[in-house]
């Protein structure tokens, strides 16, 4: 790295700046307050999240407990592939689920060529975007979000937040505890493109199908209401 380019750039940037003390800069930033978030489509966070998942052209299901989620995964696999195979990252939460009860056959690791479906357990769900947040790592190889034909994502309803600012509060707290993950992915829908004459097509490079299963006491009710609001 030519040091001179760095020095030159820093000198020129400094020339264009006010040179305020760091404490003042931080105080000023705090004084700017919080950005307004998008209006939520329903009164509660879980319903709003699911409405936006459906609007993002995702499909959704709900379960009260983890065993219900296993059956929901099994039903999805059967409906699309008449098979019970999938690939999941080494997330301890996934490893602990009663797969055998529903006959699902997970392989734990990163997706390999020829494998069509992956499963992830999201760290968070953001109602405002209808997005799930996944950290890359041992529990979730990035390829599992990007390469399969269909991506199934589980989410605990206690991990739902209303907006992106609240999402960062949780993510920043995780980083304090566990260090920074290589990637923080907000995923909000199947991969899409409108690059040919502005026509929207799904399955551009990433998954064509994106299926979210919300797990929690109120999840089934929330899903019913969300379907009514989204009309899907």
């Amino acid at each position: 790295m030519p040091v001179s380019d760095r020095a030159a750039l820093f000198a020129r940037v400094r020339h264009g700046c006010r040179g305020a003390p760091a404490a003042d800069i931080e105080a000023q930033l705090r004084g700017l307050g919080r950005a307004p978030a998008a209006a939520l489509p329903a009164a509660d966070v879980a319903t709003s999240f699911l409405v936006n998942v459906l609007k993002n052209q995702g499909s959704a299901n709900a379960a009260e407990h983890r065993s219900g989620a296993v059956s929901a995964v099994s039903a999805y696999l059967y409906a699309h592939y008449r098979s019970q195979r999938l690939v999941a990252g080494n997330d301890p939460r996934l490893a602990a689920m009663p797969w055998r009860d529903a006959g699902v056959l997970p392989r734990f690791g990163a997706v390999a060529p020829g494998e069509s479906v992956t499963l992830s357990f999201a760290r968070l769900g953001v109602a405002e975007m209808g997005a799930v947040v996944i950290y890359t790592g041992r529990s979730n190889p990035a390829a599992n979000n990007l390469l399969p034909e269909r991506h199934i994502v589980l989410l605990d309803s206690s991990d739902l937040v209303s907006d992106m600012e609240s999402a960062w509060e949780r993510i920043n707290a995780d980083m304090e505890k566990l260090g920074r993950p290589r990637g923080v992915n907000f995923i909000a829908g199947p991969s899409s493109t409108a690059d040919i004459e502005g026509q929207l097509v799904y399955g551009a490079h990433g998954p064509r199908g994106w299926h979210v299963i919300l797990i929690g006491d109120n999840a089934t009710d929330a899903l019913q209401q969300a379907r009514a609001i989204a009309g899907r």
């Binding site: 998008a38 936006n52 609007k55 993002n56 975007m129 209808g130 997005a131 790592g137 260090g179 920074r180 993950p181 290589r182 990637g183 923080v184 992915n185 907000f186 995923i187 909000a188 829908g189 199947p190 991969s191 899409s192 990433g206």
Partner: peptide, 14 residues
């Protein structure tokens, strides 16, 4: 209302 993929990358593989 949002893009499908909004990603934050910090650096090389951990």
């Amino acid at each position: 209302a949002q893009t499908c993929y909004t990603s934050f990358y910090s650096g090389p593989r951990r």
